[in-house]
């Protein structure tokens, strides 16, 4: 099923028309000329709309129901993927996918939040909001990758860690905190990509990497715009204003200089327009960064990762 955001509708209408014309084309009636014209128009309209998106619209794109999720990227980028389950303590968390695979023939570890597409899947995946056991599973698997000397690729796509009673009882804060500390000590390359929503500590808990990248229409912030609005504006509906204030788009974050290494281009109109093309773009960047990190020693990797985060501060020191 196709979902359209409000600002996507004019494009969708044009594309429907183009599809209809194609269908009516026969040997005797030729609409090729009209189709070409409309396609040109659609392309122009897309460029126009997508270069002028507000931060809120970009947030909606990052959450788009048709956007590729971790399992989609795995399918298009890796081979021989197998998933592993459970934190060996409480249960398996379907909101976080962990496993091993090959990237261009090289064995590696893959970790990522997973959202669902239909209601049943969404509920099963808890809307991509992991519980403590999800973060503990991720740590278990990352440390296993460390043990076997395998590079780790993580894919961030979550509104945030799940805020529930059970999550608090089982130590949501401790699970996230431990991941932050332990990821800092991993002796293998860690390459992080924010593919959709990078929401708060729940995102960061799998995002302490030697490289951190964002897909062109992804967002990354300390809190969701709605959560921020609820606290600072006392009104959760003020999400659009909060999105502006939080400066959460890939382009905003890139401007800060120290937080991300690359913004990965997406197909015109967003990754959901063409999963394969989006995945190919992402794969190129994963390979590039892996080749840069592959020859570093364990100590060098730990130190590079440390310095990367150590440099993040916007402060003023008076004499």
């Amino acid at each position: 099923m196709n979902h359209y955001l409000d600002f996507e509708k004019p494009i969708a209408e044009l594309e429907t028309k183009i599809g209809e014309l194609r269908e009516y084309s026969t040997d005797s009636v030729d609409f090729t000329g009209d189709i070409k014209k409309l396609e040109k128009k659609a392309q122009k309209l897309k460029t126009e709309i997508y270069t002028k998106l507000t931060r809120w619209q970009r947030t909606q794109l990052a959450r788009h129901a048709n956007r590729p999720h971790t399992l989609d990227y795995i399918e298009h980028i890796f081979t021989e993927f197998f998933e592993v389950h459970g934190d060996r303590n409480y249960r398996d968390d379907p909101a976080l996918i962990c496993g091993f695979a090959k990237l261009d023939g090289k064995p590696c570890c893959v970790i990522g939040h997973q959202k669902g597409r239909n209601t049943k899947e969404k509920v099963h995946r808890n809307f991509g909001m992991a519980n403590p056991e999800g973060y503990r599973k991720a740590l278990r698997v990352m440390q296993m990758a460390d043990q076997f000397g395998l590079p780790i690729f993580t894919f961030v796509d979550t509104p945030g860690a799940f805020p529930g009673i059970g999550a608090e009882e089982r130590g949501q804060a401790e699970a996230i905190a431990r991941n932050l500390r332990e990821m800092a000590m991993l002796k293998v390359p860690v390459i992080v990509t924010v593919t959709g929503e990078g929401g708060s500590g729940g995102a960061l808990a799998i995002a302490v990497g030697n490289r951190v990248m964002m897909m062109q229409y992804s967002v990354y912030a300390v809190i969701s715009p709605e959560g921020c609005a609820a606290i600072l504006w006392n009104d959760g509906a003020k999400g659009p204003q909060a999105a502006e204030a939080l400066k959460l788009t890939a382009q905003d974050v890139e401007k800060l200089g120290t937080v991300i290494d690359d913004v990965i281009p997406e197909p015109l109109g967003g990754a959901h327009q063409d999963h394969k093309l989006a995945a190919a773009s992402l794969k190129e960047y994963l390979l590039k960064h892996l080749s840069e990190l592959e020859d570093l020693s364990a100590d060098e990797l730990i130190e590079q990762r440390y310095q990367r985060f150590r440099a993040m501060a916007e402060i003023e020191e008076q004499q």
Partner: peptide
Amino acid sequence: ARMQESIHSLMQMAKTSA
């Protein structure tokens, strides 16, 4: 985290834990 510093506040969590 201090929301007024958005992503940079989040990064302080990783920095201090490291």
